[in-house]
């Protein structure tokens, strides 16, 4: 059981980082940015490149996160602000197209073969009978800290109040003296940073490839929708639920239920299980587990 919880946490924190970014941006500019998952791959590849250039991994990761945040803002100003004038559906299709462009760039620059960070290999740690590596522990800790910092910003700072005000009613926010464009771009920057951190976290625990972002697309969207699209912290809970469903499918031995000693469901069914869960929850609660601020207005 402890191993199950640990595995769920390891999977959930990275999903949560990207899903929180997706949901936060959605709450402000009302379209789900598909390209956000590619910011995760960009972050991982940039961090790897900087590490290969001689920077320590921590420094490389910080620089990569900042760079991805800047890229996210530039793309928002140059591409998405313009597309949004034509409507959110057009912006979403545009983000899908941009996502494909990212994939092509990753294939050309990094190649099709999976890559890994240069990390020391240590024996796994033991915690209440569960096993996890030092890298997994550090990665989960950093990601959880990032989620905590984001929650503090959202609920305990002036920027957070401005973010919630803009998400609730952007016209009124402007009339209150809030520079809504600046707030939006700050959130876009933070979403890029968190997506990059999620991508780096995933790659530290395994490997990275040009496909990393697209592999994350469906679980991240499922987590964000399950948590109530537009509700940032709801997305974090959605990520835990999706991670639990995936982990249950891949890690739990269903043998005793069917009179067999060992019976595992093939890992390929992991995504299907999370989507089955999503469909069931949405049938009961169509706006997700937590109604978003956007929907409440």
């Amino acid at each position: 059981m402890v191993q199950f919880v640990v595995d769920v946490l390891i999977r959930a924190v990275d999903l949560a980082l990207i899903a929180i970014g997706l949901s936060s941006v959605y709450s402000l500019i009302r379209f789900p940015n598909v390209a956000l998952v590619q910011y995760a791959t960009t972050g991982a590849l940039l961090a790897l490149g900087l590490q290969m250039a001689g920077l320590p991994l921590v420094v490389a990761a910080i620089a990569a996160c900042a760079l991805v945040g800047i890229i996210a803002v530039v793309l928002n100003v140059v591409v998405f602000e313009r597309l949004l004038r034509a409507g959110s559906a057009i912006a979403m299709v545009g983000s899908l197209a941009l996502s494909m462009v990212f994939s092509a760039i990753f294939l050309v620059t990094a190649g099709p073969r999976p890559k890994r960070f240069e990390l020391e290999i240590n024996p796994p740690l033991r915690f209440l009978g569960a096993r996890l590596t030092e890298h997994q522990l550090i990665s989960v800790g950093i990601s959880a800290l990032a989620i905590g910092v984001f929650a503090l910003i959202l609920f305990r700072t002036d920027l957070g109040r401005c973010m919630r005000a803009t998400a609730t009613n952007s016209v009124l926010a402007s009339a209150t003296g809030i520079d809504t464009r600046k707030v939006t771009n700050t959130v876009v920057f933070l979403s890029g940073v968190m997506a990059a951190l999620g991508g780096i976290g995933l790659s530290v625990k395994g490997e990275m490839s040009a496909q990393l972002g697209l592999d994350m697309l469906l679980p991240v969207f499922a987590a964000a929708i399950l948590g109530g699209l537009g509700n940032a912290l709801g997305a974090a809970v959605g990520a835990v639920v999706i991670a639990a469903a995936e982990t249950m499918v891949t890690n739990v031995n269903f043998g005793p239920l069917f009179g067999e000693s060992v019976l595992f469901i093939p890992a390929a069914y992991a995504t299907a299980a999370s989507f089955l869960l999503l469909v069931v929850v949405l049938l009961i609660k169509p706006y997700g587990l937590f109604v978003s601020e956007v929907k409440r207005v």
Binding site: R161, R164, A165, N169, A175, E293, R296, V297
Partner: peptide, 12 residues
């Protein structure tokens, strides 16, 4: 400025 509708931040 006080808008006509939605003139408060209902979630705050």
């Amino acid at each position: 400025f006080v808008p006509q509708t939605d003139n408060v931040f209902s979630t705050l």
